[in-house]
């Protein structure tokens, strides 16, 4: 894997998701991938920002290569989290993949206007879900060049 060779570190994903079922499904889907991906999970918007900014209980957190962000979150919702990430000098370089059940026009439009890197609907079917996770992996870790920082 190009990414692994060049960076000599495992690809890291931060999953911002409050639904334990979705967290587990994502873990299952990642199991089927060829490389080992380190998955960190936070379950609300405030935790996500704490994690990224190494605040409170996350002082030892490791910066992820990409972020999978759900929109419907307790406390701070996904759009607010996205806004803060993209307003942050350093964090804004981390690709944010919005992964949500909402196909509402205003959610999609809002996410892109706050500079989401892409917007993906969570498929209902598990096979489709696993496929989406694989595609994310293939694209973001095997196709694109990420800022190495």
């Amino acid at each position: 894997m190009d990414f692994v060779r060049s960076s000599k570190q495992k690809p890291r994903v931060l999953l911002v998701e409050d639904n334990p079922g979705d967290i587990r499904l994502t873990q299952e889907a990642l199991k089927e991938s060829e490389v080992e991906i380190v998955l960190d999970v936070v379950s609300d918007g405030e935790q996500a920002l704490d994690f990224l900014m190494k605040r409170n209980k996350y002082t030892d957190s490791i910066r992820p290569h990409i972020i999978l962000l759900d929109l419907n979150l307790p406390k701070k919702n996904g759009i607010e989290v996205l806004k803060e990430i993209k307003a942050h000098d350093s964090l804004k370089k981390i690709p944010v993949i919005v992964l949500t059940t909402s196909d509402a026009y205003h959610d999609i439009s809002k996410a892109y206007s706050f500079h989401a890197n892409c917007y993906i609907l969570k498929p209902v079917d598990f096979d489709d879900f696993a496929k989406v996770i694989r595609l994310i992996e293939l694209f973001w870790f095997n196709t694109v060049q990420l800022p190495n920082e």
């Binding site: 079922g21 499904l25 299952e28 419907n72 059940t101 509402a104 969570k122 209902v124 079917d125 598990f126």
Partner: peptide
């Protein structure tokens, strides 16, 4: 529709799994 879909997705996804 969003909040009702969440548990439905869970049921479908896990039964397939």
């Amino acid at each position: 529709s969003h909040d009702l879909q969440e548990p439905l997705r869970m049921i479908t996804g896990y039964i397939q799994l």
